[in-house]
Design a protein around this nucleic acid. Structure first.
Length: 472
RNA sequence: GGCGCUAUCGUCUAGCCUGAUCCAGGACGCCACCCUCUCAAGGUGGAAACACGGGUUUAAAUCCCGUUAGCGCUACCA
């Protein structure tokens, strides 16, 4: 049974990069009929926050990345919050200590700093020189008396290591010129990330660790630690990182790439998933617009790219438009109504519901919908007022109003009749006819065809809009 | 500095493993045209790339080496 996990630390909102790791894990598990586990890595108490954990789960669910085991839903390998597993880690540290595979290290942070500084000016490899490993009993006693609390460091005894990465293939490391003995328990008694991940991956029986490339260099440490603990390491696959549009690294502070931002702007979760799946993965043929249900059956780790990529908001917009068009009118209306209502109170729900479908082919984000529907309220403004404020247009509006006044039947061909009558009275045609009209009723230059909008509007409403334009 | 990863149009990518089918295919964006009583949407077409230098080979985007560039790790962050 394949078991994968997504293990975020609740130190900020989920962004594109995080969610991509989650998505790839999820897709991988679904395709293989495996389990996808959510684990909260909150060993850094200072930076972790419960509100972030809540937000993170909320965002994950919005994306459709529902987990099989996790802190709120439970599961056979819980608890799934690292802060609740402290005794487990402690037991592992004790075991390593007892077996001589780790040691208490009385070197202070200041000493480490100094050591590094020295290495830098002497242009030597700068990593911990393991000095704490060789302190005499007396030295340790002296330090204890000075009140120094020890960290626990893991002994690196097998520096040469070759790993097989699911995405990158063979990668060879020599720990000797990378790191020294590394800390697995801080002086305050809390475990570090390295210890916690290894213990949890082992105990939760994770078979495949799919994570960001930033962990590639950590992998040899993790394998060593796992082996020392007596566990068979999982298989590792390291995903290349995603960068911002300009190639800058993604940061938690950049909120234009957070899931919350995508939600707010009115993107479809499945479109976002589709887009980020395409960032570093391709199905192999030319397909790009891929519905969620299909995507779940298509994903293949072997087709994941090794090189990193840049986020392109324009392509996301296009793809979101495509997904919007994949929706039925009903689905679109439901989704749009939910979004609109979350934004502000809606007074004329019935009217909105009627014209909503007309906009489906026309927008890329729901945020645009809110803008374009402004004209339903009384206080909307005209986008390019120059098209309205000229004599020809005023003449047009005046005539349009009289046409409305004289029209009795409001049937199916109401729009066509209206236009025919209007054309008999004014000489404006084409752009000079349609654009001022569009502006008068919708306030915007862009939008669906007028023949889709005008027929669903109430005649009284139309009259009101034309009058307003006349005096604008 | 050390170690590791990566390198195809501006961007996302196909092709690379298993050299010849590639004067490199698709998509976004851009430009032009068509459709349209308007703007969008839609349709058609166009400009646009194998980082550089050496090998290997009858033949290299594809295999090897080097250079350069970008990124990551080098924390008592994860």
């Amino acid at each position: 049974m394949i078991r994968v996990r997504f293990a975020p630390s609740p130190t900020g909102y989920l962004h594109l990069g995080n969610i991509r790791t989650a998505l790839f894990n999820y897709l991988f598990a679904k395709r293989q009929g495996g389990k996808y586990i959510l684990r909260i890595e909150d060993t850094d108490r200072d930076r972790s926050g419960l509100e972030y954990e809540q937000a993170l789960m909320d965002d994950l669910r919005w994306m459709g990345l529902e987990w099989d085991e996790g802190p709120d839903v439970g599961g056979p390998f819980g608890p799934y919050r690292q802060s609740e597993r402290l005794q487990i880690y402690q037991a592992c540290v004790d075991q390593l200590l007892a077996e001589g595979k780790a040691y208490e290290c009385y070197v202070t942070p200041e000493e480490v700093e100094e050591m590094k500084h020295l290495a830098k000016v002497e242009k030597r490899t700068l990593h911990f020189d393991n000095r704490g490993r060789y302190f005499t009993k007396e030295e340790i006693e002296r330090r204890k008396c000075r009140g120094i609390r020890p960290t626990v460091r893991f002994k690196i005894e097998k520096p040469l290591l070759k790993i097989h990465d699911l995405i990158r293939g063979e990668v060879a490391f020599n720990l000797d010129d990378m790191v020294g003995d590394f800390i697995i328990r801080r002086a305050d008694g809390t475990p570090t990330f390295h210890l916690a991940v290894c213990v949890d991956d082992a105990l939760m029986q994770i078979t495949h660790v799919i994570r960001g490339e930033d962990h590639l260099s950590n992998t040899p440490k993790h394998i060593l630690l796992l082996e020392a603990l007596g566990y068979q390491p999982p298989q590792y696959g390291h995903l290349s990182l995603v960068h911002g549009p300009g190639g800058e690294p993604l940061s938690k502070r950049l909120d234009s790439i957070s899931v919350r931002f995508f939600r707010q702007k009115g993107y479809l979760p499945h479109a976002v998933a589709n887009y980020i799946a395409l960032l570093g993965w391709s199905p192999g043929d030319d397909r790009e617009v891929i519905p969620w249900e299909e995507l779940k059956g298509m994903f293949d780790l072997a087709r994941v790219s090794k090189s990193s990529s840049c986020y392109d908001p324009q392509k996301l917009d296009w793809l979101n438009g495509e997904h919007l068009r994949l929706l039925s009118d009903k689905e679109f209306s439901d989704f749009a109504m939910k979004y609109l209502k979350s934004k502000e109170k809606m007074e004329d729900e019935e009217m909105v519901l009627k014209i909503l479908p007309a906009f489906k082919d026309n927008i890329e984000r729901l945020e645009q919908l809110a803008e374009r529907l402004q004209f339903l309220k009384e206080d909307f403004s005209y986008e390019e007022a120059a098209w309205i404020r000229n004599d020809e247009s005023r003449e047009l509006f005046g005539q349009a109003i009289s046409v409305l006044d004289e029209m009795q039947v409001v049937g199916n061909d109401f729009y066509q009749n209206f236009l025919d009558q209007l054309k008999k009275r004014v000489k404006a045609r084409g752009k000079n006819l349609m654009l001022p009209l569009r502006l008068a009723v919708t306030g915007k230059v862009h939008g669906p065809e007028l023949k889709r909008i005008i027929p669903v509007l109430v005649i009284e409403f139309l009259r009101k809009r034309l009058r307003r334009a006349l005096h604008a």
